[in-house]
């Protein structure tokens, strides 16, 4: 089966600094990849390069097997790649409804379905983005990404800084999205949760992939867990 989204020998960075060093990664339809690594290892940089916010310096990003270098960010998004960025990117002056409707593209994820997934958003539908709590903003960011009816949902630290109940809620939704057949790349510090939801786990150290395999293979390597994720084995 062809990968939807693929990085081949991908290098990228900012100005002088080269952050990603020859990354290889392939995401197949319906697959959930957990992207892990300590702070500053290049997870966000990889996401930004995949979606086109950063250019590939060497190697390439492929979308449905085709080199995406010429595709601007909005075009990659239209082809089904949705990103929930680290800062959530909620439009503060727009209402919850406007945030959702702005993103809408045809498909099975409608406003009703998204609101059914996040009943809490339904109760805040007329509020402006800056009137939401952090957890509600995160729900809106995910709901809005789903409104684009993506084939791939990329979540960058979606549960970061949220209260435990909110985190559970986000993990529940990640499970639902996965069941719905949307492929995903999940960046998160909660190792156990990632390992239980992901089909494959990719570990980045200083911009290079040091591990790519099923969760069990990572669990079986407490040394790698300790070194690369800071988790006591």
């Amino acid at each position: 089966m062809n990968a939807i989204l693929e990085a081949r020998d991908l290098s990228a960075g900012y100005d002088e600094s080269r952050i990603l060093q020859g990354v290889n990664l392939a995401l197949h339809p319906g697959e959930a990849i957990g992207l892990m690594g300590r702070n500053g290892m290049g997870k966000t940089t990889l996401i930004r390069t995949l979606i086109g916010l950063l250019p590939a310096r060497e190697g390439s990003v492929l979308l449905d097997g085709i080199d995406a270098a010429a595709l601007p960010v909005f075009e990659r998004a239209r082809r089904g790649i949705a990103v929930v960025p680290e800062n959530r990117g909620i439009f503060a002056s727009l209402s919850v409804r406007e945030n959702l409707r702005l993103a809408a593209r045809p498909g099975s994820w409608s406003e009703e379905r998204v609101l059914a997934l996040f009943p809490r958003l339904g109760r805040r539908i007329g509020n402006r983005g800056n009137q939401l709590s952090g957890g509600e903003q995160q729900m809106l960011a995910i709901g809005r990404a789903l409104m684009t009816n993506p084939r791939v949902l990329i979540l960058d630290e979606a549960t970061e800084g949220l209260a435990p109940l909110m985190r559970d809620e986000i993990w529940r939704v990640i499970g639902v999205v996965r069941e719905a057949g949307v492929a995903s790349i999940i960046v998160d510090k909660t190792v156990d949760a990632v390992l239980s939801v992901a089909d494959r786990v990719v570990v980045l150290v200083k911009g290079s992939v040091v591990h790519d395999g099923p969760p069990a293979s990572l669990r079986a390597d407490p040394d790698l867990m300790a070194r690369c994720l800071g988790v006591a084995g």
Partner: peptide, 20 residues
């Protein structure tokens, strides 16, 4: 709405598949 959104955060507008 997309004009107001672009005034806030054009990058996010692009991420939603709208050409800022």
């Amino acid at each position: 709405a997309s004009i107001r959104a672009a005034a806030e955060n054009p990058e996010m507008v692009d991420l939603l598949g709208i050409d800022a």
